[in-house]
Nucleic acid binder design. Structure first.
Lengths: 209, 209, 209, 209
DNA sequence: AATGAATGAGGGTTCATTCAT
DNA sequence: TATGAATGAACCCTCATTCAT
């Protein structure tokens, strides 16, 4: 299994570690967090339990690597896209689109990391507590500029994050889901939610010439 | 030790089971799913591991009971409140309010059940797959009546459910949170999100050349 | 093995613990500290590894129990004999005799405990550091009364303790050794060693009438 | 890392072996026998586990080398000093002094070797069983010449060896100990112990009715 | 001469489950 | 009903050893 030693000589340390990280993601996604034993993961990676612990000094460290690599790639992916700013609404759109598209492309990795963070007591990610903080600030800036309506930015940020965090499992359960439609619908949903309340009924016709 | 149970001899089977269910919820909420061993749960319930397996033929069955009792009480709670219908918007408000308020009152139970469903392979709940189905139908009826705007009811239902499902852990992590404020903000958020798009404002067409 | 459930009903917790302690002593004495795995010890005690850890929460705790029971019985044995005091010389004789006789009767237990204390990092015994302190004080009192000669009481105490501590392994290696002869010779050896230097040659005849 | 060995390329096989032997002694002395893994020892020697097993075909063989080198240097050290003989008392003094002084100079090596011999089943040293035999013969020759008193030479030899064998750990635990004082006191102690009993003093007979 | 990679056996520990009482 | 005792499987981890390079 595993493409029979495709390039046996290039088996460098980094490659093995990546194999094991990929295997951990695969096993957790497929069989669940509870079934993800080192034995099972190592076998999935085409190696032995002992060797897995040669490359990672503990199972927790392997899991930490799963989380860390996700956040590294995720941060790179999003930073690139969020650089091009704009109005708060545009930035909210970009935030949602890039988040959801990244999750689409890495659903198993994201899902596995969520399970790890939920179940492990030692694996930590920087700023785990305020994952919604950047979003909250974004919403506040939109309110300051008058572009967004009046709502509790913390609660709204949490609701948006909930929709994002749920997406990985949704994509995993429904691999045939129309991703672009899903993304654009979700974006539209929350853009409507943050819009200012329409002016009292009369104003609509009033503002029209 | 523990031999002065004479007065409590009338403990019925059901009461013991409820003790164990409560203990399982307590241990999972407090120490995490991974730390919830039968030994630990039984001790929390004031009994022995052997006796726990006398009342529940397996740990999975105990967990199943945790999930089942939650859905029974939850269904009763919500059915009562959803019976008094009204316009789709009113029903959406009622749906969100009753759901969130129920979660407020049973945060530990809800959170524990979510962990169980995430981690157990055998525990099942009726209609787990289409937990969003009633909500989707509610949204569709609102669209049919023209009260709601045009959006994908499935995706919207999923986003709303995500916000609801996240609430238990939020309440557990922040026990001092202003629940009524949280509920009313969340209701308002999603009511805005399902409203029909306002008639194109003058400025929108004005800004187009 | 192990007298086939001689009195299966009296299998109380304490009895099992004593079985396991005895088995640990036996395995360490016979096969060495390094070969003493929990599996091996449990099998020797006629039970399983899992059950051994049911009665002792860890292997270290079992080893701690080996050491503790030894020091308890040893202290009881010696306290009884040392109570009847006398001159320092008599007390030194009693100290040596009771120590060595106790070791004779518990050679395997003593040897196993020494191995445990040498190799374990966590097992501790009260006053492990100054095992020679009571002996040193005994010697000092003999010097104060003029009954003993001039020597460094600390160094002498250490040498006497060395002879005592070596005895367990000696008895284990030579089970047919004449214990009473060994004890009386050792007592005589150290009694000579602590005697005051004989008066300068002339004085011997001088003190004689 | 560790690639600037170019200048040290002339490292001969023997030098590497000595490095590893020294490292084994260091690790056993510092971290204990149980913590002395090949990995740990090799790292201490500045090389790799694989290379350690290139120089010693097994860990046991390395430990055997630790023991063998100790006995070789020890024998050379003592043979030189014991050659210049004299009266039995002088030879006993020399025996004790040279032994203890050698141990002073090689406390870690001696201590490590004792641990190895205690714990390993395969490492053997020539004449381990009768380590006390030369001493016993020495004592017997003193008795034959009338210079020593009447005592069991075997038992006395064992007690003296016990004091010697304990010294390594004493020196390791108390590096600031006054070695010369310790040696002279120990010599004096055992010289007194082997002396013939003084002629019965007048007071002794006087006290008898 | 030396290294990193890999293995497999064995160790201690946890835990759901069984069973006699 | 309830308990303590016991089991066996599975888990993570350590380690001496092998091997290709």
């Amino acid at each position: 299994m595993r493409s029979r030693e495709s390039a046996a000589l290039s088996r460098t340390r980094r490659a093995r570690r990546e194999d094991l990280i990929a295997a951990a993601i695969q096993v957790i996604s497929q069989d669940g967090y509870g079934a993800a034993s080192l034995e099972r993961i190592a076998r999935e990676a085409g190696t032995s339990k002992g060797n897995a612990l040669y490359h990672f000094s503990s199972k927790e460290e392997l899991y930490q690597a799963v989380a860390t690599t996700l956040f590294e790639t995720g941060a790179a992916y999003m930073a690139e896209r969020l650089r091009a700013a704009g109005t708060p609404a545009e930035r909210l759109r970009t935030y949602l689109e890039s988040n959801l598209r990244f999750i689409t492309l890495n659903a198993a990795h994201v899902g596995a990391t969520q399970r790890i963070l939920q179940n492990s007591t030692t694996v930590q990610v920087i700023e785990v507590e305020d994952a919604a903080a950047p979003l909250r600030r974004l919403l506040q800036s939109g309110q300051d500029s008058g572009e967004f309506g009046a709502f509790d930015p913390e609660i709204t940020a949490l609701s948006i994050r909930a929709a994002i965090d749920m997406a990985a499992f949704l994509f995993l359960r429904h691999p045939d889901l129309d991703v672009e439609h899903y993304i654009s619908e979700t974006v539209a949903l929350f853009l409507r939610a943050v819009q200012p309340a329409p002016a009292p009924s009369a104003s609509a016709s009033a503002s029209a010439p």
